[in-house]
């Protein structure tokens, strides 16, 4: 049952645990930033984005739960789905960063005070945490049992 995953179980499992903790922390911090008006650097202060990060953490946590209960395929599927969401958020913020940089480069008034650090939020710097799952997924997928 689920032999390929068992071989790499530790890698996927450790990454899913790491991602759930990291995204939960980042999500809670960003939500607090938005509600309390804090300004913790590199976290962001968008309330809905904070909640989105918490939802991503929830997907990973559900994956951890499935792994622990021995439901390997479900745990793996949740890890992949979570990593996919992380990739979407990462690409989204990279595009926003690029367009803001364009506004700055063109000397547009609204972007005159733009700084790179403003756009380097949790969705960008947490992406590397999801990379091992994506890499693993591209290398191999679990076998179906007859």
């Amino acid at each position: 049952m689920f032999e390929e995953i068992r071989e790499h179980y530790r890698i996927v499992f450790v990454n899913v645990v790491l991602n759930s903790i990291a995204f939960a922390l980042a999500g809670v911090l960003q939500t607090l930033n938005a509600i309390m008006g804090y300004s913790i650097a590199f976290v962001g202060n968008n309330l809905l984005e904070g909640l989105v990060l918490v939802l991503v953490a929830f997907v990973f946590m559900h994956g951890v739960k499935c792994f622990v209960k021995g439901q390997g395929v479900d745990g793996y599927a949740l890890a992949v789905a979570g990593a996919l969401l992380v990739t979407i958020l990462f690409l989204l913020h990279i595009i926003i960063l690029a367009t803001n940089a364009l506004g700055f480069a063109l000397g547009l008034e609204d972007w005159a005070e733009w700084q790179l650090a403003q756009d380097l939020n949790a969705s960008i710097w947490l992406f590397p945490f999801a990379l091992p799952i994506i890499r693993f997924y591209r290398m191999q997928r679990p076998k179906k049992t007859n």
Partner: peptide, 17 residues
Amino acid sequence: SKGEKHYSKTDLLDRVF
């Protein structure tokens, strides 16, 4: 005839989505 098959992208993602 069924052989040793891997879960497809659709099989895996649909379990979550």
